[in-house]
């Protein structure tokens, strides 16, 4: 596997395949991600990009090939899976906050029950994180009382509270009203600049241009093209990439 900075990649995927019954969703994905790298995955809907990042913390199981995260290979061993999930944070399209808990409780749940931190320490860290994502004053509110953008930022804080080495973002702004997209992207950009390893499924090309080290273009379960934002935006090699970019960048 090639690396850009010489150290071992933190995520290694070799020939990853997945089927939903007879439907072949992922058809041999090869991808290595370095520590601190920000990779944006884009492509038409149904191309398997969400399924792919969900295999990295094993919300989806792959059936062939290997995925190695932070030196641990994903297998059926539940202890391996739970160990990896502790190191990998995830942010979802539909936020998936726990509606019966306050914003603060959403953030402290993982540290208290998984990391076994004392409640007081977990709350201190949680308040710092809510501050970092710009909504310290919403700590005691329930998700239903927050706007979509605020909910997604709580979700980011919830994932960060586990102090993950890797953050996965599954279309984090697709369910948001236009005026809220920026507040979430700003948080993500700040996170990228802080050196977090990030895998982002998104069509926000402005974000990709500003924050990504690499872009990966998915079509029908295959990586069609990957490269730096420069290469992809200014000089795409594949016809399909050109066509897709022209479609989403038109307006």
């Amino acid at each position: 596997m090639t690396t850009t900075n010489g150290s071992d990649p933190i995520i290694i995927c070799r020939d990853v395949h997945k089927w939903f019954d007879d439907f072949h969703v992922l058809r041999g994905i090869d991808l290595a991600v370095d520590t601190g790298e920000v990779v944006v995955i884009f492509g038409p809907s149904g191309s398997g990009k969400s399924t792919f990042i969900r295999t990295i913390n094993r919300l989806e199981e792959h059936q062939k090939g290997e995925i190695i995260v932070d030196g641990i290979e994903l297998s059926h061993d539940i202890r391996n899976i739970e160990a990896i999930r502790r190191e990998v944070g995830m942010v979802f399209q539909q936020f998936n906050l726990f509606p019966h808990l306050t914003a603060l409780q959403n953030v402290t749940l993982g540290p208290i029950w998984v990391r076994r931190w004392p409640k007081q320490r977990a709350e201190e860290v949680a308040r710092e994180l809510l501050e970092r994502v710009g909504i310290p004053e919403q700590a005691e509110k329930h998700p239903a009382q927050l706007s979509g953008g605020q909910q997604q930022r709580v979700a980011i804080a919830r994932a960060l509270a586990m102090q993950p080495k890797i953050m996965l973002f599954d279309e984090p702004t697709s369910a948001l009203d236009p005026e809220m997209i920026k507040e979430v992207l700003d948080v993500m950009q700040e996170l990228a600049e802080s050196g977090m390893t990030m895998l982002v499924v998104s069509h926000e090309m402005g974000f990709a241009r500003a924050a990504a080290n690499r872009l990966v273009f998915f079509v029908e379960g295959v990586i069609v093209e990957k490269g730096t934002p420069e290469q992809i935006f200014n000089n795409p090699q594949e016809e399909r990439t050109k066509l897709f970019l022209s479609q989403i960048l038109q307006h």
Binding site: E82, G89, M90, A159
Partner: peptide, 8 residues
């Protein structure tokens, strides 16, 4: 999904 993702 969310519960799994934080390692519960």
């Amino acid at each position: 999904d969310a519960a799994k993702a934080i390692g519960l």
